[in-house]
Simulated assay, not measured.
Amino acid sequence: MSHENATPDTQPWNDPKAVPFLQVKNVTKKFGTFTAVSDVSLDVYKGEIFCLLGGSGCGKSTLLRMLSGFEDVTSGQIIIDGQDQAGVAPYARQTNMMFQSYALFPHMTVEKNIAYGLKRDGLPRDEVAVRVSEMISLVQLDKFANRKPHQLSGGQQQRVALARSLVKKPKLLMLDEPLGALDKKLREETQFELMEIQENLGVTFVVVTHDQEEAMTLSSRIGVMTDGQIVQTGTPHEIYEYPANRFVADFIGSVNIFEGRIVEDEVDYVVVQSRETNTDIFVAHGVSGTVGQKVAIAVRPEKMTISKDPLPDMRNVIKGTIAEVAYMGNRSVYQVQLESGKRVRVAHPNRTRRGAHTLTWEDEVYVGWAGQAGVVVSQ
């Protein structure tokens, strides 16, 4: 089941009666005079894969370390499954953490790496054997149980680390850049494996990543972080289609942003005058603004149409010259230079091997988009 296609019954964040499994309440973390995490509040529900997404130094890993108990909060409260975690040591929490480096023991086999935590906890040998065997099967490493880490691929090492983190049956598993060491193709394959394993076990995941595609693929919801704060929380669809502000629009995927001023402000639409386009831009939704207010309009490249011919059916049309062309296989991306000097990115799908879309450098073109394609975002 895709997280994004979940039914309302499987979206507890939309149910006012649902009790969050993880509650972060006004948490701040300071290192001397530096504030790494600033007044963050967050609810995560049982069975979610929740991604904390942001660039380097935004505070996401620090927040993860506070959840796991490796860092103390300066102020605020962390509650897991109804229990306040203040003063609770990492080993006493019903949580586990999978590190980016995997931290496998090089001298131990796959089987012994996975069993290590259970043996330290003093579990009976028979129970250890059963749980390790189940976990090895779950991550599909039955043929590699007696190999050591250096005899495994990066993807196999990642699965050993995951199995070792899950074999102790934590209620909450935190993953710090779990796929960062894998190449692109393997990372994409492993994302789906990770989702399948999580669904089979029902463990709540909190994943830290800087990779937007990874967050969009894995998560039930995303919290976008910058400067120690979560600036928007939502499903991948909400974050991508309805960014709360300019930072989120710019950070998630590729986007064209047009500066302008509101010249018409109605309940169900606004018109924005922009020097960058030398024309008015129609946006088919209302905003909480006023005439004359400065705003920014975000339009995704794939929501734009490009043509050598006029686009009479398009609500918004601008003219320019193709400055750059990038062939990406499944699509081509065009950079179109406008008269104002601004460049616009347009993505066009390559549906046929040798399509009629024969646009190239220096072509004069029209770029158009529907009123529903643009979103007015705050600065």
Rank of each mutant, 00 (worst) to 15 (best):
G355A: 05
E213F: 04
E364M: 04
F70R: 00
V19K: 10
E238H: 05
P20E: 06
N14Q: 11
Y242V: 05
I136S: 03
S340G: 09
A370P: 00
S68D: 08
S378D: 14
T277S: 12
E364V: 05
Q23R: 13
G54T: 12
P178H: 13
V333W: 00
N5R: 10
G234A: 06
P124C: 06
F205Q: 03
A115I: 13
I78A: 04
Q77N: 09
G286R: 01
G234L: 03
L173I: 13
V167Q: 00
V248F: 02
Y366P: 01
R354F: 12
V365W: 05
E339D: 15
A244I: 03
V375N: 11
P312S: 09
M225W: 12
S340N: 05
S219K: 04
Y102S: 08
R275M: 02
P236G: 04
E214C: 13
R345A: 15
I239V: 14
S75G: 11
T10E: 11
G54S: 10
C51L: 02
G87H: 06
A284P: 00
G117Y: 13
F251M: 07
A323N: 13
V263S: 07
V263W: 06
T33V: 09
V344I: 15
F258A: 06
V376H: 09
G87C: 02
R351H: 11
T10D: 12
E266K: 12
K169W: 02
F282L: 13
T290N: 08
N278P: 00
A92M: 10
V88W: 10
D81R: 01
E264D: 14
E241M: 09
S137G: 13
A249V: 08
D126H: 07
V295F: 14
M66R: 06
V167H: 02
S133E: 15
R65V: 13
F247C: 05
G329V: 02
G82W: 09
P349C: 11
S153C: 05
V365A: 01
P124W: 04
M66T: 09
R261W: 01
N26G: 12
F192D: 10
F34N: 09
I222T: 01
N113S: 11
M195A: 14
H210Y: 11
P312M: 04
S38V: 01
G228D: 09
V73E: 04
E339R: 09
F50A: 04
R275W: 00
D121Q: 15
G32V: 11
L42W: 13
R125M: 02
M66Q: 11
A296N: 15
A103V: 05
K143A: 15
R221D: 06
Q94K: 15
S288C: 01
S220I: 04
L201M: 05
E241I: 00
L53S: 11
R65N: 15
H107G: 11
A92D: 15
Q198I: 10
V40G: 04
G260P: 08
A129P: 02
G122Y: 10
Q100I: 06
V19I: 12
G202K: 01
E302A: 11
Q77Y: 03
M216D: 03
Q140S: 14
G82V: 06
Y45V: 09
R93Q: 03
